[in-house]
């Protein structure tokens, strides 16, 4: 049996499931955003070899799982706990949603960590790993550099003085800033604000408004782009795509900012030089990732600059324009190990 740890809104999960259904595979999906109303953890015992989870009335034994695909970030303890009625309202009316809630959350967290550990240690094959899917951007950059990949000159700065110094030093090249984490998005509950991140250039008039000392933040020199590259890895197979983002003012720094409803992004298949591929493969191995999407830049001087790796990035955006049919390839990979 194949287990997919996905997310309900994830199109790549759905597409791979369609292929698995086509091949009559035995599989089931647990989603990060499944709450207690959708999944139930029924029963577990080591000796009986029973680890029963119920989803929409159907019971699955995790001991039967041969293959797992960690598509996203596993099960979410918060989402699960939130739907349970905790003791708060009865016993801690004043402390509502505090002590007991946190205790239940910790219990769930421990249980879920064990579930992920159990699954990964019990299967024949895992694609992606719950424990490796959250990569640290700085660790990745450090490793990339060690394997001889070119990376943008990167700084963590926290004072206005240093920031101004760097801007002047790099001029006419610009500095950009981006979050250290994988990125955030939060639309305010009342719909009055949205909090999210894109890659942005740091202009001097902006810096003038910054406090003398600020929160330690990641800055990188802006790399001049001829093309942006996206490389999807599935074990040792790789699929590259070039994105022509440069002729469009809005998508220059971050193609996600492209107003693509006016002008769609031009994406085409790309042949990555062998030497770069080998370095990327070593990097993926080092990071213990057997799948993921890598972002790179091709400079006007034909230099390949490594930016980051997304262990669970969307691959439909690479699959579709290049006709790579990656969803089928992922499905076949899972199926192959389930049948062995």
């Amino acid at each position: 049996m194949i287990l997919i740890l996905g997310r309900e809104d994830d199109l790549s999960t759905t597409n791979v499931c369609e292929w698995l259904y086509h091949y009559n595979a035995k599989f089931f999906v647990l989603n990060t955003d499944d709450d207690h109303s959708k999944i139930k953890i029924d029963y577990f015992n080591f000796l009986e070899k029973k680890f029963l989870i119920r989803k929409k009335g159907i019971e699955y034994n995790l001991f039967d799982v041969n293959v797992v695909w960690n598509r996203r970030h596993g099960l979410d303890p918060k989402k699960f706990t939130n739907t349970y009625v905790t003791l708060d309202s009865q016993f801690f009316p004043e402390e509502k949603n505090k002590f007991h809630y946190h205790h239940t959350l910790e219990e769930t967290r421990t249980l879920f960590e064990f579930i992920h550990h159990f699954i990964e240690s019990n299967v024949n094959y895992k694609l992606g790993s719950f424990f490796a899917n959250d990569v640290n951007k700085l660790v990745v950059l450090q490793s990339a550099l060690a394997f001889g990949l070119k990376i943008p000159d990167s700084y963590i700065l926290s004072t206005k003085k240093d920031l101004i110094e760097k801007i002047n030093l790099l001029s006419p090249k610009r500095l950009i800033t981006k979050p250290l984490t994988q990125g955030v998005y939060n639309a305010g509950l009342d719909g009055k604000y949205q909090y999210y991140n894109y890659v942005n250039a740091v202009e001097i008039d902006f810096v003038n408004e910054v406090e003398e000392v600020f929160f330690p933040s990641l800055f990188q020199e802006e790399i001049e782009k001829q093309l942006e590259l996206r490389i999807f890895f599935l074990e040792d197979d790789y699929y590259s795509m070039a994105i022509f983002s440069q002729e469009n003012e809005t998508s220059k720094q971050d193609f996600r900012q492209n107003e693509y409803w006016n002008e769609p992004l031009r994406c085409v298949p790309f042949d990555l030089p062998h030497e770069i591929v080998e370095k990327l493969k070593s990097l993926m191995k080092k990071l213990k990732l057997n799948t993921g999407s890598i972002d790179m830049i091709l400079t006007p001087e034909f230099e390949y600059v490594f930016l980051e790796v997304n262990p669970c990035g969307q691959f439909i955006m690479t699959s579709e324009p290049c006709n790579y049919n990656l969803e089928q390839k992922v499905a076949l990979k899972l199926l192959h190990y389930d049948k062995r």
């Binding site: 369609e18 259904y21 086509h22 042949d271 006709n323 089928q328």
Partner: peptide
């Protein structure tokens, strides 16, 4: 488009398989 290295850009390959019979 114009490029100095046209060999970097392969054509789209045909695929026969579909997931709906």
């Amino acid at each position: 488009f114009i490029t100095e290295q046209p060999d970097l850009f392969p054509e789209i390959k045909q695929i026969r398989d579909t997931n709906t019979d």
